[in-house]
Design a protein around this nucleic acid. Sequence first.
RNA 1: GGCGCGGUAGCCAAGUGGUAAGGCAAAGGUCUGCAAAACCUUUAUUCGUCGGUUCGAUCCCGACCCGCGCCUCCA
Length: 466
Amino acid sequence: MPLRFYNTLTQQVQEFAPAHDNTVRMYTCGPTVYDFAHIGNFRTFTFVDILRKTLRANGFGLNHVMNITDVDDKIIRNAAAQGKTIEDYTATYIQAFLDDCATLRLERPERLTPATQHIDDMAAAIARLGEGSHTYNSEGSIYFRIATFPQYGKLSHNDFGGILAGARVDVDEYEKADARDFALWKAPKPGEHFWEEPIGPGRPGWHIECSVMAIKYLGETLDIHAGGVDLIFPHHENEIAQSESLTGKPFSRFWLHAEFLMVEGQKMSKSLGNYLTLRDVLARGYEPEAIRYLLESVPYRKTLNFTFDGLKSAVTSIERLRNFKLRLETDRYPEGVQERMTARTAAASQAFTDGLNDDLNTAEALAAVFEYVRDANSAMDTGEFRAGDVAGALELLKRFDSIFDVLQPGAKGGQLQDAEVERLIAERTAAKKARNFAAADRIREQLLEQGIVLEDTKSGVRWKRK
RNA sequence: GGCGCGGUAGCCAAGUGGUAAGGCAAAGGUCUGCAAAACCUUUAUUCGUCGGUUCGAUCCCGACCCGCGCCUCCA
């Protein structure tokens, strides 16, 4: 199945390929670094990670830019409250964000672009918009005049015809000429940090950074622009207005948006007490892989209900897959190849790919893998599974994990060295041979306390760290 | 009010105009010294409600109910 995505712009599922060479030029909205990112943020960032990996699996190269919004009202306010510079204040959260991404195994985009390093570019872009009569000044701020962009609303599919009647209001008497106009450049308030630019002193509005950095690094028309659904309006709509007024070309061919995340069936909010950062969830003792699995198991266009029951279920699901992998690696199988298994592996692999290519249907892709695991386990139980089938099965798992990335356990704090574990297992095996089961069970218990789980199989003892 | 998304078993969730994937949980069984792992069986005559189109609808159309998001900062 060819790769297809739902495009917010056209409201249709469309086949995707990069416009020019084989490289996808993609821009995704990154974090505003005024605090630790929450799991809702990571739902979106995890979707972007799946998107990246699926694009790569389709043979495309990636040129992906993600912004870091390191100047906005909250940042200015919080930094001032703590007597810090903006830079010092955001440094903590930028690092935290990078650490959290690493924890969740999210790939780094090809380029991360902090807004504050592109202020000159933004000011220049605003000046050029001014030359095109797309802006007006009001009380020291510069606004984008939406009346100059008739297509405004094409992404969010809103008709602003009626609202735009406000454009008749006299500019000089009002801060904004039209309710939908938005700030490109904000006049400095007393005591606030500002930049001195040819367009005047001030700081950039929220939307301009994305247009400017995207065009600077990726060109005038992107292949993909992605983010959370809440960004469709006004953020992405405004980006389109600015960018297309600037270039006269479509800003992005595809717009992908991840749905919201809820917590325990309710919207996440600080007042409800269900506001969760990644760190909060980790502090409850869950491994990052389980969180990652839960976030990626629900297709991105569907609201994800994040629950701790769901997390537990994710833990078990991953365990099943890891057990299967361990079994492949440790059991002994009769020589030869089972043709039925070979065909089964190929079919599962195809179904996995088809699922992902169908607008990143991760649920479908997962189902293909789990169905395969059941069939293969079953074949192992009956002795049909052959030594020659192992490689294909491992290859399938590898493909799965190149996207989902949950099979490799994170570093565990186990104190026991492998050699020591092996020694104790040998001791236990000897005790079992002597039919001293009490002693054998004692050793197994002892290992379990160290997080080592033993499994007796026909091929011998298999162990894993829990 | 406008725009958008969704309502499928205890929970999460896929899906198609022809009769309901997958995961978790639960119960029973096989295997095992005991476990663990694994496998097998059972668990939605039914897909928010009511109409309509159709030989046939969970899937198409209409109305309604409910949840969520955006419309102000927000993933």
